[in-house]
Design a protein around this nucleic acid. Structure first.
Lengths: 222, 222
DNA sequence: CAGTATCCGATGCGATACTG
DNA sequence: CAGTATCGCATCGGATACTG
């Protein structure tokens, strides 16, 4: 951890918080992740060795709190008061990024895995029709994993997968990663994408009409 | 420049803005520096090669603007609109640092060179007695440069040096780097430091009594 | 689930000297 | 003042495999 050797509190905060990956960890905790592999879901390129090291560092600085659950081997990470206070910083960074990067550059960074993970965790289960649902996404242009499924079981179980479970979907989105990302990020709305043929949706009426309600967008502009 | 490969605007902003030294450059520009070697004064450990590279990067991203003055070889750096918008981020980082780092840790990072540079640029010339002034600082515990001078020439010329100009000072601060830093950062006030014998001041009355007016503290909590 | 263990390559970075 | 030019070390970091 190289240091600026400056007494400026901003410089000191930067050394710690802005070290590579640290803000990503904090973002994940702010978004509700609380254990090791969940954090990795939101940061797939984050190697476990390095994540482990960074978590220790943040714990040592009392920015996060590590807690073993009394039963089993599970570990729970949470934000301390100073950790929660990083929200303002992260939020301002997100605002700046959303304002000053070209939409095309942001969209260009999208990929199915992260998009689907983010869609899944932003799905508003209370707004879905309250029955078992299979929500399918077809990205015909994708080679590795063109098909994804979000599995909903009331009241709030939501799972994500890219392996066919062999059941018919209740709703199918036929679209591109780019178009779905635009919807998710709030750059385009649902109607626009349908009308421009960037998205096609098939399925039961009640779930289709409620799409804008349950398909969560990132309010949190990180 | 390694990337997170995430479409999250916060992650993208972080890659660029939070890369080592970039926020320091932006801080300096926010504080009024506008050329190469002035920036280095506020970041003495920043190698010129690396500074040059970073300036180019920030210029390429249109966060700063580089301009050759029409006469001579001087170059002027300024913040663009998006650059100015980084103020919120830097400010939040500074707030966080000032709130969550122990005062002792912040003070422990202080050193004469940066402290004096920051004092000099925060000196409020309009509040000084309007005559030529030599303001001397003695840090008896410092080995390399125990004595510093701020030279004021009305109305607004303020220079800093650590080489004796051979003239008597109008005011002399006998103190430690730590104590002066505490005053500068607003952790302690002038009266307290005098009473605890952490600071002694000799000189003309008018300049002494107006110390709290002209000895600038860092309002800007970076 | 929650991490460790390795391993090696890239390059970031600091220090210093030098130029126009 | 405004940068270039070197240069080699250190370490950061990514990928992958493996364990309790």
């Amino acid at each position: 951890m190289s240091t600026y050797k400056q007494f400026c509190p901003m410089a000191m905060a930067t050394e710690l918080l802005c070290q590579r990956w640290n803000l990503i960890i904090l973002r994940e905790l702010h978004l509700g992740s609380c254990n090791f592999n969940t954090i990795r879901k939101g940061a797939p390129r984050f190697s476990p060795a390095l994540l482990s090291q960074r978590l220790k560092q943040l714990e040592n600085h009392k920015i996060i709190f590590r807690e073993k659950e009394t039963v089993g081997t599970k570990v729970n990470y949470s934000l301390t008061t100073s950790g929660k206070a990083t929200f303002d910083i992260i939020s301002k960074l997100g605002d700046w990024g959303k304002l000053w990067f070209d939409e095309s550059v942001i969209i260009g960074n999208s990929e199915p895995q992260l998009l689907m993970w983010d869609l899944q965790r932003n799905t508003i289960s209370s707004k879905l029709p309250q029955r078992n649902l299979i929500i399918e996404f077809n990205f015909s242009q994708e080679k590795q994993y063109p098909n994804w499924w979000i599995i909903f079981k009331p009241p709030s179980s939501i799972d994500l997968g890219h392996i066919d479970v062999g059941q018919d979907a209740d709703i199918i989105f036929k679209t591109s990663v780019e178009a779905l990302t635009k919807l998710h990020m709030g750059f385009n709305n649902f109607e626009t994408l349908i009308q421009s043929n960037d998205m096609e949706v098939l399925g039961a009426d009640d779930i289709i009409t409620s799409i804008p309600d349950w398909l969560g967008t990132t309010h949190f502009s990180v």
